[in-house]
Design a protein around this nucleic acid. Structure first.
Lengths: 146, 146
DNA sequence: TAAAAGTATACTAAAAGAGTATAGTTTAAG
DNA sequence: CTTAAACTATACTCTTTTAGTATACTTTTA
């Protein structure tokens, strides 16, 4: 599994905030609209806040907004904030587990390193402004279709 | 993590057998050369045999060979034999976990489905004949380099 | 017919994943 | 100036997966 549940939720959270970028949204709203357990959402939020992806407002009338423009947040940013860099196998994450050689003699290692790079590039290529626009177009298409 | 330890070992096992495709190789040889716990290797072997990637010979002088030509075995074949199809997130594996919609309204879902497809294509593009040749070229390069 | 191979099933310890609980701190409003 | 509505911090727990092990076979060849 490339992405864990926390990251999957985080994608939806950031997407939701991107669609409501002009107001402060409180946890309970995101949690109920996106069907994420509230306590778990707070846990995810702390990672997103720490990474600067989300900004939090405490106290009454508090809540969350994005920490920067949707176009400057990618799927990879969110994934890294929650679970650290994508890993393909143990050997690529931790060179000490690579009995063969992290050093470049192992052709399988090379292919997996390449795959990791490809995955990260794909994730970096998707930003949340694009996703919001994409959804808008998709929904308009569905409206006309009826 | 895209690939678990068993799959990682399986790549090395198949690669080893591809490099020794003209003889029957016994478990203990693979296990010691590739530093894979012997009992664990047998477990992996059963999946590879069941998938037709490896052929086994029982009894004295028994061992393993590839079940078909190295060029007809890809990284994706081996991965699927060990841990089933690549999954990107829970929602893509099990539609019932997709609260939004497996049906195509969710732009994030679409991107992750696309990513999954890309990963599988990359893994299908690498066969073991190519890897064996690649290693040969790499090692020749290193010899000259000295 | 015995020893050297692989086979089958089931078990287990450790780690990761997913979520929960408890006890805070901050802030706006009255 | 206090109360209630927000978020924060740390730690805990339950479940599933991962990685590997144990025990008791079956097959084959010398």
């Amino acid at each position: 599994m490339v992405i864990n549940q926390g990251t999957d939720y985080a994608f939806r959270i950031v997407f939701f905030l991107a669609k409501h970028k002009h107001r402060i949204v409180e946890a309970i709203e995101i949690s109920s609209r996106e069907e994420i357990p509230e306590r778990f959402l707070f846990k995810i939020m702390r990672s997103l806040v720490k990474a600067g992806i989300v900004k939090s407002y405490r106290g009454k009338n508090g809540g969350f907004t994005l920490g920067r423009e949707p176009k400057d947040i990618t799927l990879n940013d969110v994934l890294e904030a929650i679970e650290g860099p994508v890993t393909v196998n143990a050997c690529l994450r931790d060179a000490s587990k690579c009995t063969k050689d992290a050093s470049g003699y192992c052709v399988i290692h090379r292919r997996l390193a390449q795959l990791r790079w490809d995955i990260v590039e794909k994730l970096k290529a998707v930003d949340f402004e694009t996703l919001v626009k994409e959804e808008r177009i998709l929904l308009e298409g569905l409206m006309k279709g009826r």
